[in-house]
């Protein structure tokens, strides 16, 4: 078995390693494929579909699709960009994402993704669902209004913290994050030092009383768009 796999992404030729996903190979090559549910260090999940690429013309999620020799991948073509914009729009309208007062504003990956794609308002109508806030825990809060069902906290709690505090219940549009307790977060074994507390891409799983401590201008995405850290690796 060869120790490299040759493929092209947007006409850039690159060598990946066997067993890598498209997204991993692209990251190493300094090519940013947008993603929301994926986080390095967690099992690939493939739910947001924002990393959708065309592999030899067929749509695939880059975060779960392993590379194979000769793959021809389209990632930043107009067609793929439009699909991603649709998906980002859907995530916005599905929940209640009020960036203007959300404490994750400026550090939110969903918001940063919208900015990266030049989305100022979604093209789909807001669904304005009625969703709850679970503030029962003294140090942690879940604002279900902003959950994008990415399962990062589910995976981190299960695989990194060994706790399985989070999971999903119900299906379709009613699918929602739930906690491993009769009803409330306070009744679980979650702790504010859990790794699961550091992975939420949006303002859904929050550490209490830490909001707005970082002033505007010093937040994660105030000056460089999301993905710059990966694209920066390429230019070096």
């Amino acid at each position: 078995m060869s120790d490299t796999v040759a493929l092209t992404i947007d006409n850039v030729q690159l060598q990946g390693r066997p067993g890598q996903t498209i997204l991993e190979a692209a990251d190493e090559a300094g090519i940013y494929i947008p993603r929301l549910c994926h986080l390095k260090g967690l099992q690939p999940f493939g739910s947001c579909r924002v990393c959708t690429v065309l592999v030899n013309g067929r749509p695939q999620a880059a975060c779960t699709q392993p590379i194979s020799p000769g793959m021809v991948i389209e990632s930043s073509t107009e067609q793929v960009r439009e699909i991603r914009k649709d998906l980002i729009d859907m995530l916005f309208v599905e929940g209640n994402h009020f960036c203007m007062f959300c404490e994750r504003s400026g550090n939110c990956e969903l918001q940063a993704m919208a900015y990266r794609f030049g989305i100022s308002a979604p093209r789909y109508p807001f669904l304005f669902p009625s969703r709850a806030v679970d503030a029962s825990h003294p140090d942690i809060m879940i604002d279900h209004n902003r959950c994008i069902r990415c399962a990062r906290c589910v995976r981190a709690s299960r695989d990194l913290d060994g706790k399985e505090v989070f999971g999903f219940v119900n299906r379709g549009p009613h699918k929602e994050l739930a906690v491993n307790a009769a009803a409330r977060l306070v009744d679980t074994t979650v702790d504010v030092t859990d790794q699961a507390m550091n992975v939420c891409p949006v303002g859904a799983l929050l550490k209490k009383r830490t909001a707005y401590v970082v002033p505007i201008g010093r937040r994660k995405y105030d000056h460089t768009p999301i993905g710059s850290e990966i694209e920066g690796a390429r230019s070096q």
């Binding site: 203007m100 007062f101 404490e103 806030v133 503030a135 809060m141 209490k208 009383r209 909001a211 707005y212």
Partner: peptide, 14 residues
């Protein structure tokens, strides 16, 4: 109502 208190100064200025 129901929002966390630390959000209020940023929210109500709207």
């Amino acid at each position: 109502q129901g929002r966390p208190f630390w959000e209020v100064p940023v929210l109500v200025q709207r």
